[in-house]
Design a binder for these strands. Structure first.
Lengths: 145, 145
DNA sequence: TGACAATTGAAAATGAATATCATAAACTAT
DNA sequence: ATAGTTTATGATATTCATTTTCAATTGTCA
């Protein structure tokens, strides 16, 4: 099942409508799979394909997509949200944020199973999601010292 | 060395001044060691001891304290920052955020050494800090189903 | 097709955080 | 202690991402 069928299905399930705007926004997100676009960046890209769109619609839609699990909200402490496509297979990854150049590098793999098990046991806390960021210096910036 | 001496020393080191406001703000943070107060909450508490203080001073001071390493900035995706006292001994902990009641529970221990080593090796990325949050349901809310 | 609810775009509103600027307070060397 | 220099403060205005409002539009389903 492709992303559009998923969108259609999830919308229908909850009584939401499939609009052109929603289709175009998903389109843009899919074309930028690994890019962590901000709401404003998505708005700019969407406007090229659908100039009449309003900024509020983009914000509303991203929020909706997050609730539907189509998209994942990221926060890199810049005072704005970013989004990435939720990919079942590839979702287990962490972000490495370079304190010098600001680049965000992906670290594939989850690797938190043991820690999560420990938490579930010692705290009786049922984990459904996590958010892990590492701050430091990327290979590029390390070499430039 | 207590926190006030630390403050004094770190300020002097960088040519900053030790003001009553800064002292009172640190005071409030220390009195609420494990509370994750927001800037506004700190402002309210500080005003009780020092009513003339301005909101901007609180924001400025928290930013300064973070730079000095006295305080740690937290982001629980509420659109506002929270702060906790930086405690050398007890700083290695993670936050468990309950999706139902919103409570934040502390999980002592770091337990990321292996993952960090792996990242440093495979990505040649020098880690200096990390930020780990787990989302799920706390023991209280699990029992209330 | 028609009816009804959900959706949209434009503009205004919100709210946390930051910038501005004149006044005040802290530090330094005398 | 004091004068002189610099940093800090408080009040206010401003910024900027995001949300709300509301009238007009558009999907969906019988």
């Amino acid at each position: 099942m492709n992303e559009f069928d998923k969108l259609k299905e999830k919308l229908k399930e909850k009584g939401f409508k499939l609009t052109t705007q929603r289709r175009v926004i998903l389109d843009v997100i899919m074309e930028n799979k690994n890019k962590h676009l901000s709401s404003e960046e998505i708005y700019d890209l969407v406007k090229r394909k659908y100039p009449e769109i309003g900024l509020a619609t983009v914000y509303r839609t991203l929020q909706l997509f997050e609730e539907l699990g189509l998209v994942y909200k990221l926060n890199f402490d810049e005072g704005r949200n970013r989004y990435e496509l939720y990919q079942e297979d590839a979702h287990q990854h962490h972000h490495l944020i370079c304190l010098k150049c600001g680049n965000v590098i992906e670290m594939e793999g989850d690797l938190l199973e043991d820690l999560e098990k420990l938490i579930e046991k010692t705290k009786n806390f049922e984990i459904v999601d996590h958010n892990v960021k590492f701050y430091g210096y990327c290979s590029n910036c390390r070499n430039k010292v």
